[in-house]
Amino acid sequence: MLAAEFAAKLGAKVLTGEPRDNTEIKGIYCGDLLSWVMSHAPKSSAWVTVHTHLNIVAVASISELSCIIIPEGIKVDEATINRAIDENTIIISSELTAYEICSIAHDCGI
């Protein structure tokens, strides 16, 4: 499923604007320890994290994750959004919890 389509399923907002390419989500990975995420998250996963600082963009990019999903309406720093736009990394903001996001992903066949 495309990241933009999944955002719509979540009723979530894509903070980084319309995705420039057809970025596909092939799995979901939840985690807040950055090194753990880098060493364990499968490529093309959507990454659910409560972190909103600049470094999440580098972690997502280096780990080849399809997008970052910030749960529970946590406010994302403007600088992080701008960095993500520059790096062509998608950030989605959802009001749902990580569990609810994963449940919807499962229902969507992700």
Binding site: L34, W36, H51, H53
Partner: peptide, 9 residues
């Protein structure tokens, strides 16, 4: 608190 320092570097 920023998610670093997990001793995995």
């Amino acid at each position: 608190e920023m998610g670093f320092g997990a001793g995995m570097g």
